[in-house]
Computed example of a mutant assay.
Amino acid sequence: MSLTVIVLALVTAQRLGELALARRNTRALLARGGVEVAPGHYPAIVAVHAAWLAGLWLLAPAQPVDPRWLAAFVVLQALRVWVLATLRERWTTRIIVLPDTPLVRTGPYRLLSHPNYAVVIGEIAALPLAFGLPVFAGIFSLLNAAVLAVRIRAEQAALAESAAGGP
């Protein structure tokens, strides 16, 4: 089994595990009175990420691995773990506002408003580049930027409304 296939298998397992965690956290947040905001964009995010991973499985297995880009991807995974550990049960793939709960301002959130999105931006580019697929990295970086623009705008509006006493 090649290094590329091992990496893709690990990334796939990670993403499936994260989806299970997100589903569990979403249910728990909703049970605590959380409100999902702007769910309409969610299928587009799922589609972009699923197509990214499927495309990598299709195009990357025959490619050699660039260790520098793979190392960058591994560093991004450490940052992802930091985000997940900081948010704990509040991490989800959806926008869930928990009324009367302050924003997280610890960990990477001391440095950036949206560190998870910064990690995702890096991942979407770094992994295809690790497999010598720069055009693929560019295409999916643009698609990801489009869905993140919608999501961040919706999330910022929801958080501002929540801070002002709304849902």
Rank of each mutant, 00 (worst) to 15 (best):
D66Q: 13
G17A: 03
H41I: 13
T26M: 09
A71Q: 08
P64S: 12
L111M: 14
L30I: 07
P43T: 06
R153E: 05
T26N: 07
F131I: 01
I152C: 02
A78D: 09
F136Y: 13
L29T: 01
G34E: 02
R90Q: 10
I96D: 01
V120Y: 06
L129R: 04
V120D: 09
P102L: 04
S113M: 12
A137E: 04
L159K: 01
G132N: 10
P108G: 07
L112H: 08
A60P: 06
G17L: 04
G107Q: 04
V135G: 13
V81P: 02
A154E: 07
A78M: 10
L159R: 06
L70V: 02
Q156H: 06
A50Q: 15
L148Y: 03
L148V: 02
R80D: 09
L70H: 09
E18K: 08
A47F: 11
L133M: 06
V11Q: 11
T12V: 06
A146Y: 11
A20Q: 14
L21Y: 04
R153M: 05
T93D: 15
I95T: 09
L59F: 15
V7R: 01
P115K: 00
E155R: 14
G40N: 10
V120R: 07
L70A: 08
Y109Q: 05
A130G: 04
R80Y: 01
V120S: 09
G122W: 05
P39M: 07
Q156S: 11
E18L: 07
R24S: 12
D66P: 12
V35K: 11
R110Y: 12
I139G: 07
F140Q: 00
A72D: 02
Q14P: 05
A62M: 15
R110W: 11
A72M: 09
T26L: 11
V48A: 02
R27E: 15
W52G: 00
N116S: 11
P43W: 08
P128H: 06
A13P: 00
H41G: 11
W82T: 12
E36M: 09
R90S: 02
W57K: 08
E161M: 13
R151E: 01
I96C: 04
R110Q: 14
A149E: 11
P102K: 05
L79P: 08
L79W: 14
T26S: 11
P64Y: 05
V75I: 13
Y117S: 00
L30K: 03
V104G: 03
G132M: 02
Y117R: 00
W52Y: 14
A22D: 01
A130Q: 03
V74F: 13
P99Q: 10
L111P: 00
P102D: 09
M1Y: 14
A130M: 04
T86D: 06
I139F: 13
G132C: 03
L58G: 08
V48P: 13
V75A: 15
P99T: 07
D100Y: 11
L84M: 10
V147H: 03
I96G: 02
S141V: 08
E155N: 08
I95K: 00
D100E: 15
A13W: 14
V74T: 10
R153F: 01
Q63D: 10
A22M: 09
V104A: 05
H114G: 03
R27H: 14
A51E: 10
V37S: 13
A22C: 03
A164N: 05
L30M: 05
A28T: 04
L10F: 12
S113C: 13
A130N: 04
N116C: 03
W52S: 00
